[in-house]
Amino acid sequence: MSTLDLAETSLRDVNAALQSLNGTTNQTAWEVLNPRGAHALAVGLDAPVEVRVKGSTGYYCAGMNAEATIHVEGSAGPGVAENMMSGTVVIEGDASQYAGATGHGGLLVVKGNASSRCGISMKGIDIVVHGNIGHMAAFMAQKGNLVVLGDTGEALGDSIYEARLFVRGSVKSLGADCIEKEMRPEHLELLAGLLERAGADATPEEFRRYGSARQLYHFHVDNAGAY
């Protein structure tokens, strides 16, 4: 286990040390001490290493992550795992707004609650939130899966393209062009895998599925006069 202590080492040097790791490194286990809400911690990692952050983080933790597994043993500020490409990010506490925004791949697990705009413009990432999520989740989501074990805020999936949304609790309201959809066997199978990977204690049959009605993003010739 290699240790980086933000009480002794600058944020820039901590990030540089983590970012310099590549696929051939033998130093695959790291811990970061005293994050104290620091911004942009462990961003841009590009190696299959495991990083444990011992505390809460500020804006943009684990952004652009590729391959790494990052655990935050606390809560995360706005934009956690933003634009993640692959790998896994686990938040033991809550996540602030726009968690997993624009993510292309990988798995983001939030064990507490996530606030507004979770998964906004997601492009292939899988997000599993054990608690509740705020308003405007999965706004303009294009690809990937958002799983919520608790309740959602207003306007879930507004202007959604092709992502799948699975919710166990209540949905306060659906956004424009987002509808409830049939849960077919392949969805139950997909959801079972996601719940297992996220360590979530739930069964797929408890969930409802939501997705795009595909009325908003197809051009209708009947509307030509409006342009």
Partner: peptide
């Protein structure tokens, strides 16, 4: 931001949450 709390006494054991909209 959470950073503002980092020197408060007992912050590691505090209940921390975001006020709802």
């Amino acid at each position: 931001e959470y950073r503002a709390f980092s020197n408060l006494p007992g912050i590691d054991a505090a209940r921390v949450w975001e006020p709802e909209p």
